[in-house]
Computed example of a mutant assay.
Amino acid sequence: MALSLRETLRVLNSNRSLDQILQFIVHQAREVLSAQAVAIYRPVDQSGIMQIQAQEGLSDTYVRLARIPFGRLATGNAAVMRKPMTICDVNQRLKNRNLALDEDSEAILLQLSTHYRALLAVPMIFPRGEVYGTLDLYYDTPQQFNDEDIAIASAYSDQAVLAIENARMGERLAQAAVLSERDRLARDLHDTVTQTLFSASLIADALPVLWEQDEANGRMALQEVRQLASGALAEMRMLLFELRPEALLSADIFTLLRHQVDAFSSRTRVKASLRAEHFECQMPADVKIGLYRITQELLHNIEKHAQASEVQVILEHADPDPQRKLSKLHCRQCRKCVRLVVVDNGRGFDQKAVTSDHMGLRIIQERVDGFNGRMDIHTQPGAGTRVEIVW
């Protein structure tokens, strides 16, 4: 039992889904509590009916049939009375005419009696008092459940409830993260694409008049519309990548960086270029996504702080540093490192005045550490900034 509780605590601290947690609970309970079958019952909405949410060892027929109202049989009574309930002998319960059974309850017990003879139902109650459901243990012989049997089952149920609560909290956090990301993308769509298209629309509306008044100004306005449309297209491509994570994984690093640079240039009107070597070796997904996110963060910092007029992004091979051993992540085929360089001609900064825990730099450093890379920053006030990432 102690080993089982430790295993349950291990699962409690894992990132498994709720369905995986429930299936683990019934499997573990069946082994540890020496039951022939185990089921977790949950109320169905506000109907007052409990149904099986996870089980091991029960027949498909019984699982379909087992719809137990609150206050009926051991399962429904355990949920309502918030304490363990037992049926020590199913056959004797069916024969006892002093305890009337409705038609549905009798059908459930009849089906149960074809395989099992005893049942222990333990309520699953969260620390704050909410009843999650019941943990039902089924035995193929009649049982005389004593206080120790019930206490052990209840202790297991308490640990199981904590694991369920942890899984539910994880799902809520994941849902919150999805909503937060959706809000961020909506803001990006409004701040970039929507405003760009609105500007293009205004210029396009005025273009016929400008052309008639001054053809040179009209041509300049037409060029502005082209640039705005191109910028909106670049931003939309970036947003589509963000909406489809599988697209990030399938795209090559050059495509990802090209979209980053194009979107940055169209958004900021800063001259930006990309120079990238062709890589024959396959770059690991975590490194590719890491370099993509690092470039994204660096370009964001330039836009926000640098006041630059020109930016260059470089992706190239580099010879390994003889003073540093190759990590297991480096390409063994070409025996080369990958170097990402982002350079701007902006105002630079005093590195001594910017601590290592600065949010932007810390995020980038964590990403670099994530794929065992190295980051070097070369900058000084008034002299631009060069950030070099080597993997």
Rank of each mutant, 00 (worst) to 15 (best):
L3F: 12
R6W: 13
E7P: 04
T8L: 12
N15W: 05
Q23V: 01
V26W: 03
Q28W: 02
V38C: 04
R42K: 11
P43Y: 02
Q51G: 06
I52C: 11
S59C: 13
T61P: 05
A66K: 02
A66W: 02
R67D: 01
M81W: 10
T86R: 13
T86W: 07
C88K: 09
S105N: 06
S105P: 01
G129R: 04
D136M: 01
A155R: 08
S157V: 10
I164L: 08
N166P: 00
L173M: 08
T194S: 01
L197S: 03
S201K: 09
L233V: 13
L239N: 05
L239T: 04
F241R: 01
F241A: 05
L248M: 14
I253C: 04
R258L: 10
R267Y: 09
E280S: 15
Q282C: 11
V287P: 06
G290M: 09
G290Q: 06
K304V: 14
H305E: 15
Q307C: 13
Q307V: 12
Q312W: 10
I314M: 12
I314S: 10
D321V: 14
L326C: 15
L329V: 13
L329F: 14
C331D: 12
R335L: 07
D350K: 08
D350V: 06
T355L: 14
H358L: 09
G370L: 08
R374V: 06
P381M: 10
A383V: 07
G384V: 00
R386W: 02
W391I: 07
